[in-house]
Design a protein around this nucleic acid. Sequence first.
DNA 1: ACGTTATAGTTACATATGAAACCAATAGCA
DNA 2: TGCTATTGGTTTCATATGTAACTATAACGT
Lengths: 156, 156
Amino acid sequence: MTAKRKPAHPTAEHAPLQLEHFLPYRLSILSNTISQAIAEDYQRLYDISVTEWRVMAVLARFDGLSAREVAERTAMDKVAVSRALARLVESGRVSRSIHDDDKRRSVLGLTDAGWTMHDDVAPMARAREREVLAKLDAEERAWLERILDKLQPAKR
Amino acid sequence: MTAKRKPAHPTAEHAPLQLEHFLPYRLSILSNTISQAIAEDYQRLYDISVTEWRVMAVLARFDGLSAREVAERTAMDKVAVSRALARLVESGRVSRSIHDDDKRRSVLGLTDAGWTMHDDVAPMARAREREVLAKLDAEERAWLERILDKLQPAKR
DNA sequence: ACGTTATAGTTACATATGAAACCAATAGCA
DNA sequence: TGCTATTGGTTTCATATGTAACTATAACGT
């Protein structure tokens, strides 16, 4: 039909997304950049993944959790937790025993080696967080806190 | 040595991270939740992954990019882009030709089918973004914008 | 007590992802 | 020109991840 070659869909009609101003996209980049920076710290020193570190962090705070509870607290799915635990138990950083009253449940906790590593890594993680937050002034930090609270998919 | 069982590392000495207040962790959850919600929309309607959609979104805005340029703009690595493009070309949503002056480069763009899909998906993505932002008032949205600008790892 | 349903956790399979090796074309430079 | 280094892009391989199926135990209703 059309004799001449022309853009079948002139841009004006399309309103393409501007990724650089699109919230989900920006969050994704920011989140990955930050998490990756922290992960490099402990992956360099210890051979451990992000998911494994999160499991350890949660067990540092709540001793004796079951795997399901760890999954809840880390927002990871139970398969990921199961695998992380397999490696952590294997590498001697997490202890696992069986719940007295419910033999399905495991009772998890950091071992001495786990604590040693935790006490080395936690300050590095906090330092990285501080580096990021240092780009903001006090007022901005307060708003960020507030905004995250409101956006956070209501948990628990 | 120790006769009695006691915590080898009393919590007070450890200062464990509180994940629920730890910025990188919160960002990660938030980002995944939002991206997932959007992805469900177009994955249900079209059989397409997040990375593929991002490539399409960028080509909708910047016609004729090379694969490397797409990788830059999407912050994806070139392998991921290569694979996404293979599927997109295969499914007829993206056209690929070879650059006149540099035969290594591809010249990429949406096909008519690609545009049709784009014009269907883009409004849905925007609607999801609006849903998220609706949880904030105007002032909070303005601060969020500003904060993201400052935290954004300086690009380009 | 007994059969049914639900829960904790693991395993299997299929797919996604990243690092490094690779191929082809171009750029730099003697 | 001809040799080397660089760049665009794809392929390979090893690892990670999600879904669904599975095992074992516990809870529930009768």
